[in-house]
Simulated assay, not measured.
Amino acid sequence: MTAALNRLPLLDREQVVRVALRLLDEAGLDGLTLRRLAAELDVKAPALYWHFTNKQDLLDHMAHVMTEPWMRAVAVTTAGQGWEDWLAEVARTYRALLLSHRDGARLAASTRPLPGSLPLLDGCIAAFQQATGCGPGQALQCLTTLIAFVRGFVLDEEAERHRVQEQPGPRTRQGSKRTVPRGGQPVPHLDAAMHETGSPNGEGTFEYGLHLILDGIGGTLRRHTTPRNDAQATSGIHKAAV
């Protein structure tokens, strides 16, 4: 214990979070324990409580570190883009971020923003308002809807990846069309749909869902934008459509 305490000044919160994210990629969310993290840092588990009140506090900080660069980028990428192109980029980069870490979507879904994340969220709302001319409440609802779709989609992708890893037998090539276990029952419409679109967890389905949401946001903006900002919003929608 004395040796561990002697090492405490060398152990900072940033270092702990960085190692925790590495362990997340190695062991997944279920395998990330405070005991394992402490062993990796060569300290006793109680030493971690100098920096985090509990495991949930650690997870909240991990999610903040994971998403902070993305949120900063979101707020400054509207220049020269229509709102629709900007939101599509927001969604695609968020998906890429979540997929870049094992159980990244589970981590994001199981945590709450830290106080340090709130100014970043505020900047995202401001950027959306500037791009569309809508009010702050509508901007928050649109962004929340988009983020919830991306996070849910990646959760399904993660679950499918886990299922494939756990199933015995040969695996299909990445990107190949997914087959459906039929159990002896004919499913001609499902077969036709899978042949046409590929995996329901694939790139095509993500893009289809993304554009459904963007179309819905566009319709909402046209119906509910205040008269003062009608010209600005209409201009943004027109630029995104051409």
Rank of each mutant, 00 (worst) to 15 (best):
F149P: 00
L107V: 07
L87N: 06
N229E: 12
E203W: 05
H64M: 00
Q167A: 12
R171H: 13
A108R: 04
T53V: 11
N6S: 07
G80C: 08
L121K: 04
T93P: 07
L37Q: 05
T111G: 11
G133I: 05
D25W: 01
K177M: 09
G175C: 03
Q167H: 10
A47D: 11
I237W: 12
V90M: 00
L87H: 02
T144P: 00
A109E: 12
L114R: 15
R171L: 12
G236A: 03
L99V: 03
Q130T: 13
T77H: 09
A20H: 08
G204Y: 03
T205C: 07
A39P: 04
L221N: 06
V17G: 06
Q138M: 09
L140V: 04
L37H: 05
A241S: 15
K177N: 11
T145S: 07
Q81I: 01
G82K: 01
C134W: 04
T220A: 12
E160W: 11
I147T: 04
Q56W: 01
G123N: 04
Q185W: 07
L210D: 10
A27K: 09
P181C: 02
L190T: 15
G152K: 01
R151N: 14
L155C: 12
G219T: 09
R35M: 06
E68V: 00
L8M: 12
F149G: 00
L48H: 01
K177Q: 11
H189E: 15
V16C: 09
A126D: 12
E68Y: 00
E203M: 05
Q185R: 14
P186M: 01
E68A: 09
D60L: 08
I147R: 05
D103M: 04
F206A: 10
E203Y: 03
P200M: 06
Q130P: 02
D156N: 13
L221S: 06
L32I: 10
A39K: 10
C134R: 03
D42Y: 00
Q185V: 15
F206G: 06
D230L: 13
L5G: 08
T78K: 04
L118H: 13
I217F: 08
Q185S: 08
T172G: 13
A192G: 12
V154S: 10
D12G: 06
T33I: 09
L34H: 08
R151H: 05
R18C: 02
T93G: 14
P168N: 02
D215L: 13
Y94R: 13
D215N: 12
E68N: 04
Q15C: 02
H238K: 11
G204W: 02
V16S: 00
L97V: 10
L214Q: 10
E203T: 07
